[in-house]
Design a protein around this nucleic acid. Structure first.
Lengths: 231, 231
DNA sequence: ATATTATATTGACAAATATCAATTTATTTT
DNA sequence: AAAATAAATTGATATTTGTCAATATAATAT
């Protein structure tokens, strides 16, 4: 289970996210008053789809997966979060519910800001507000790409995209160690884990990548990009 | 080609969209100054993906499809617009580009509001701003459902969803005439038109629906909802 | 270290879906 | 109305992807 830090105050995070650079000292103080931090073990829920949305979170340490829980147990991983990354919810101003789940894939920490406090600051600070809209809209653009990728590409292209995403956006190395399971990679690509494993094997046999049980090395990124393009 | 109305002023639309109820008279006047209307024939682009985003649009008459243009000619129709419906762009505050295309499926009219003017009003009116965030977030929630639907359901479920969407959200009747082609319905469901046609035929053979070349009658909605659920 | 459990892998096969070509039907133009 | 064009339909077939069961490997608990 998650445990609160001693006094529920966030030491590690100093509202470092880009978004907060638009706040005045007073606003930062106001937000800080309600702010607290939670420590998570690997595999714990930061947010749970369907649950009440009361706080904006900010991942300050570790890593987490953001995913949609479909009806028939099928999850779709939208993206991975690294520090320092904000986690809002489209339920904000709509139904105050979470519409995705966020689960840590390693020991992590997150900072929480009361959604009402956040709303107050949004109201009083229009540059901050526009920046928040920018944040939301960027997420929408990513979602568009996810949608066209998952509906328009075949298995090879989707696995290539997932590997490139991990390498370029998440781990920022062509060779990386990860806590993601094969099922997780399957959930990133909307495939079954068996299909996922088969494509990975193909890529390995063709010398495009090499991997162990929890590490990947992208030997030929250009090839992966080509595969992503032709599907 | 689209043609401007005589003096480029919008008569039909009086900023009727829900969103605008939060504006003061002065703000409405300010927006109205830059506002103009365009008439479209069926099949014309209101917005084109990739093009510069300079204006928010509001569909005041007719109907339009909003779709993502994928790489290999594969389009995904996100939704259909009816009057009076706002059409923003996730490029707002991000890259000032359109990330989807909007094309009329019948003769239509749209009202345009300068994005800079819109931004000014957003800045000065925080209830309006929060309402706009609500608007964006609602769109995100719809997108989540689209994503889980298209990746998690089989052909039958997806066609059922499209038919129910048309009936419940767009035409608001269980029997309706539409300008959507079979290709359009295929684009709503991320299927090929041939597969789409086959499922429609199956549904017809089972007495769940009946249809002509441009009309549908949903005889058994409960069955469709059941099909949507089990796949 | 050993037993236990979870995860990953493989193969054979079935199901879902797309492709391609041919034909029919509808729509538009002359 | 006839001709021309576009859209819808159908069938045969290939491709893609999932399912299920068996085995192997890794991770965790005793």
């Amino acid at each position: 289970m998650a445990k609160f830090s001693k006094d529920s105050t966030c030491y590690a995070c100093n509202l470092k996210h880009n978004l907060f650079r638009f706040l005045t000292d007073d606003e930062l103080k106001y937000i800080n008053k309600s702010r607290y931090e939670v420590h998570y073990k690997k595999g714990e829920n930061i947010f749970k789809q369907g649950d009440a949305f009361t706080h904006i979170a900010c991942l300050t340490y570790g890593m987490a997966k953001v995913y949609l829980e479909g009806e028939n147990d099928k999850n779709v991983i939208l993206r991975l979060l690294r520090p320092v990354e904000l986690i809002g919810s489209p339920g904000f101003q709509v139904d105050s519910r979470h519409h995705f789940s966020v689960v840590t894939i390693q020991d992590s920490r997150a900072c929480f800001i009361d959604a009402n406090v956040f709303e107050q600051v949004l109201k009083s600070n229009s540059p901050f507000n526009l920046e928040f809209i920018k944040y939301i809209n960027s997420a929408t653009i990513r979602l568009f790409n996810k949608l066209t990728g998952l509906t328009g590409k075949h298995m090879h292209g989707r696995i290539a995209d997932a590997l490139l995403y991990l390498s370029d956006q998440v781990y920022k190395k062509s060779s990386f160690t990860t806590n993601l399971s094969r099922q997780d990679i399957a959930d990133m690509t909307a495939l079954t884990k068996e299909s996922c494993i088969r494509i990975l094997k193909e890529f390995k046999d063709e010398g495009i990548i090499e991997y162990g049980s929890n590490s990947f090395n992208l030997l030929d990124k250009e090839k992966l990009e080509m595969i992503s393009r032709v599907s």
